[in-house]
Lab assay of single mutants.
Amino acid sequence: CHSECLGNCSQPDDPTKCVACRNFYLDGRCVETCPPPYYHFQDWRCVNFSFCQDLHHKCKNSRRQGCHQYVIHNNKCIPECPSGYTMNSSNLLCTPCLGPCPKVCHLLEGEKTIDSVTSAQELRGCTVINGSLIINIRGGNNLAAELEANLGLIEEISGYLKIRRSYALVSLSFFRKLRLIRGETLEIGNYSFYALDNQNLRQLWDWSKHNLTITQGKLFFHYNPKLCLSEIHKMEEVSGTKGRQERNDIALKTNGDQASCENELLKFSYIRTSFDKILLRWEPYWPPDFRDLLGFMLFYKEAPYQNVTEFDGQDACGSNSWTVVDIDPPLRSNDPKSQNHPGWLMRGLKPWTQYAIFVKTLVTFSDERRTYGAKSDIIYVQTDATNPSVPLDPISVSNSSSQIILKWKPPSDPNGNITHYLVFWERQAEDSELFELDYCLKGLKLPSRTWSPPFESEDSQKHNQSEYEDSAGECCSCPKTDSQILKELEESSFRKTFEDYLHNVVFVPRKT
């Protein structure tokens, strides 16, 4: 048989008469490798580009789960590009990614509803959504962080984005990388972005840091009482949809009607710091009717980097990364020049730590249904340095008659930039024990000054392991946590139920 035959053949030295091919099969003959313009397919066939392209389009058009959109890589027609490569849609070739590779997620039936953290986790790592997304989240724990972890990498949506009755959302900033909504599939009414009845939605994105392009379709905003109209108009300008909307697409009466839409800028007039305090004062603000001013709200939190936005980490279910302080308005003076500047002394802060701070007014709604208010920009203030805590785990070892090696770990709280350490030492008198000992005694162990690591005695271990207080009263049991108490109650309830079950099964009433 021919060298490319495997198993047997019907005619000697003829690659077209093989029972099976050793390498690849091409047009009725066995070959060692697939010549151009053919590609290896499933490690035994040679196919042309049209064959591989037909497989790709067949799966793409069917949208069946589990099928493969075949691509070409290293002269092979394979189910998908290997790690580190992405497909070129024009020629199906796998090309190296520039940075992290995109991950295209194809949605069944063309859309997916995100109504819980669990459903959001199914899209973790996706960068391109081939379909439409509907966000409908009523509640949950730590929602802002969970949504950002699972949806934060999405850069492109081919269909539309719909935010509907998501009472738990305060902001859409968890879509931190969303840059493009194509609108290839539109919501009824030709809408590519749809926001309806979101009672706590206050911000779409921080438009000073976020760009969003909507290729096709219109915007729809109705019944978002805490979303200011200025935020919607800003989205029109940034996304390129200005002029597409009709009169009733953006409701003037049901958007922002319960919001404090600040239209003035508060400026800080005085800032002073110490290692654990920050004193702030800002310019006074009074609405047209000074009785509408209820006070100020001061927001602050630790910020290692200057990239904080107002609604980071917030949701309507209680999660809030900001510390909020309510401040009463100052006494009002008739003389504008003698107006008191409101302020606040922030206490209990960490030394040498940068804080993000902003302040906003708290006002009631005027009778004319106009909203007044003022808010400052987010500023960054760093507390002063102070003395560091003591170095940890000092170790001293003498390696000769004239040297001592000293080692330690950095302090747990540096409280500033540590530039150097101060080492103090003092000579001590020799131990009298060394002169009084009889060095001729056998088995004498000389006193040693070398360091030995501390260890816990058996008594201390027994005390720590004991669940009861000892007789001397030195140790006591740790208080039980809520989960331990709940577990004990469940076990007790189970024992009672099981005992009742045994009584009912074992003891049967005697027939009379």
Rank of each mutant, 00 (worst) to 15 (best):
E122L: 12
D289Q: 05
P351I: 09
Y270T: 13
K360A: 13
S338P: 10
T273H: 11
V325A: 03
H106C: 10
A385M: 14
Q245R: 07
T118H: 11
E302H: 15
N142M: 13
I357T: 05
G139S: 13
L107E: 14
M297D: 11
Q199L: 12
T371S: 09
N334S: 05
A144T: 03
I181Q: 00
K234I: 09
L180F: 13
Y223G: 08
K409S: 09
R347G: 14
K112G: 15
I214N: 03
S333G: 11
I134V: 14
T213R: 12
R369Y: 07
K103A: 13
L108F: 04
G243M: 12
G183A: 04
E283Y: 04
I271K: 15
L331N: 10
N399F: 12
P411S: 15
G125S: 06
N334E: 02
N198D: 01
N340V: 11
M346E: 02
L201G: 00
E236C: 03
A385S: 11
Y300K: 01
K209I: 07
N141G: 12
R281W: 13
K337G: 10
L219Q: 02
L153G: 14
S116C: 15
G217K: 12
N190L: 09
D377W: 15
L298G: 14
I404M: 05
N255V: 02
I134P: 00
E368W: 09
A316Y: 13
S319L: 05
S208A: 05
D257I: 06
G256T: 10
G131W: 00
G159L: 00
Y355E: 00
T361D: 01
L147K: 00
L180C: 10
G139V: 13
Q203T: 03
Q203A: 15
Y167N: 13
V325L: 14
I379K: 03
A251V: 13
L180P: 00
F174W: 08
T118L: 06
A303D: 03
Q258G: 02
A385L: 03
D377K: 05
K209Y: 06
S321N: 03
R202S: 08
P410R: 12
T215C: 07
L180T: 09
R179W: 14
T383C: 06
I163P: 00
K375T: 03
W205L: 11
N142Y: 01
L252S: 11
Q339E: 07
K407F: 04
F311R: 11
S173N: 12
S338V: 06
L406V: 08
T371R: 09
E155L: 05
G159S: 03
Q403F: 08
F174V: 08
L153N: 08
P410H: 14
K242P: 10
G373W: 13
N334F: 09
R369C: 07
Y160L: 09
G110T: 03
K162H: 12
T127L: 11
N307D: 15
Q216T: 11
I157R: 00
F268D: 00
T254V: 07
V381L: 14
I405M: 02
D197L: 12
R179N: 13
S132F: 00
D384H: 14
F296P: 01
I250N: 09
E368V: 15
I250K: 15
K409V: 15
L266C: 02
K242D: 09
G313F: 13
S132A: 10
G159H: 02
G125H: 13
Y300I: 08
D326G: 02
S319A: 07
K301P: 00
S116P: 01
K407R: 02
K301H: 06
T273Q: 07
N255Q: 04
G240L: 15
R138E: 12
L212Y: 01
L107T: 07
L293M: 07
N141T: 07
L147E: 00
S119W: 03
A374W: 15
T215Q: 10
Y160C: 14
L293I: 09
V104G: 03
D377T: 10
N200L: 09
N198W: 00
L293P: 05
W344R: 07
D249R: 04
P394R: 13
W286N: 05
S389I: 03
Q339M: 11
L151K: 00
D115P: 07
Y380I: 02
Q306L: 05
G125Q: 09
I154A: 03
K242Q: 15
N248S: 13
S333D: 10
N198V: 01
K350Q: 14
A120H: 08
R124H: 15
A149C: 08
G343M: 12
I154E: 00
Y191N: 07
I214W: 10
D326R: 02
S269W: 06
L294S: 11
L180E: 15
L349Y: 00
N141L: 12
K360D: 04
G295D: 12
F290D: 02
W282A: 13
L266M: 10
S171A: 14
R244V: 04
S166N: 12
I395H: 12
L349N: 00
Q245Y: 06
N141A: 09
S274I: 07
S400T: 07
N399A: 14
K267P: 08
I404C: 07
D292E: 15
H341F: 06
E368M: 07
K209Q: 15
E184A: 07
W344I: 01
S319D: 14
I357M: 02
K253H: 06
S260D: 05
P391Q: 01
I188P: 06
E156K: 10
L345V: 08
V397K: 02
R347I: 08
K267T: 08
A144S: 11
T361I: 14
D328H: 04
K301V: 03
F175M: 12
N211E: 08
Q354R: 05
L345G: 12
E237C: 04
G217V: 00
T213H: 02
G110C: 04
T215S: 07
